[in-house]
Every structure is written in C-alpha cells, then in structure tokens.
Amino acid sequence: NKFNKELQWATWEIFNLPNLNEEQVKAFIDSLRDDPSQSANLLAEAKKLNDAQA
C-alpha cells in the first residue's frame, strides 16, 4: 500500500531529524497517524522546522 510505505518513510525521517525536540517529534508522528495521506506535507513541515531550529 502506497500510503503505508510513505507513512513508514515519513515516520523514520521525522524520528531522525536532529533539531526537533521530543514533543515536536511526537506531535508530527501523531499527525501522521491521524492522516497518513498527509505524510509528504507533514514531512516537509517537519524538515522546515528542523532547519529553522538548526
């Protein structure tokens, strides 16, 4: 299933962003679980936040 692979990839990527704190990671993962179809958008937002906090 396409969404499942995207969800797994986005989850792994978010867990490995070095500049997000635990609460931010949890919030993004919760959002992914709530709406897996938004995984690409949520990953992009997480990466933006990660870069901003570098």
Rank of each mutant, 00 (worst) to 15 (best):
I14K: 01
D35H: 10
Q53W: 06
L32M: 13
N50Q: 02
A52P: 03
E23R: 10
L20A: 00
T11K: 07
I14H: 01
A40V: 13
W9A: 14
S37R: 08
F3N: 15
D34S: 13
F28G: 00
I14W: 01
A54V: 11
R33Q: 15
L7Y: 06
A52L: 13
N16P: 01
E6A: 05
F28N: 00
K26R: 08
F3L: 14
L20Q: 00
V25D: 00
P18Q: 10
E22W: 13
K48D: 06
L32D: 00
K2I: 15
N21D: 09
N50D: 05
K47L: 06
D51M: 08
Q24I: 03
L20F: 01
P36Y: 04
P36M: 08
F28E: 00
S31G: 08
A40L: 13
A46Y: 03
F15L: 15
Q24N: 02
Q53K: 05
N41E: 11
F3S: 15
E22G: 10
A46E: 00
L43D: 00
F15K: 15
A52V: 07
A10Y: 14
N50V: 01
P36K: 02
Q53R: 05
I29Y: 03
K2Q: 14
L32S: 01
K26D: 07
D30K: 06
D34P: 02
N21K: 10
L49M: 10
K2Y: 12
T11V: 14
N4K: 04
L17K: 00
D30S: 11
K47Q: 10
L7V: 12
A46M: 02
F15Q: 15
T11Q: 12
E13Q: 09
N16V: 05
N21I: 06
A52W: 09
A44T: 07
A10L: 10
K48L: 08
F15Y: 15
D51K: 12
R33I: 15
I29P: 00
V25N: 01
A27M: 13
D51F: 10
L7M: 06
A44M: 15
I14Q: 02
A52I: 10
A52S: 10
L49V: 08
L17V: 01
F28R: 00
S39R: 03
L7A: 07
N21W: 07
N19R: 02
E45W: 05
Q24F: 02
Q8T: 05
I29T: 04
E13Y: 14
A10F: 15
N4G: 14
I14A: 02
W12H: 13
L32I: 08
D51Q: 13
F15H: 15
E23F: 11
R33A: 14
Q24P: 00
I14S: 02
K48Y: 06
F28A: 02
N50T: 01
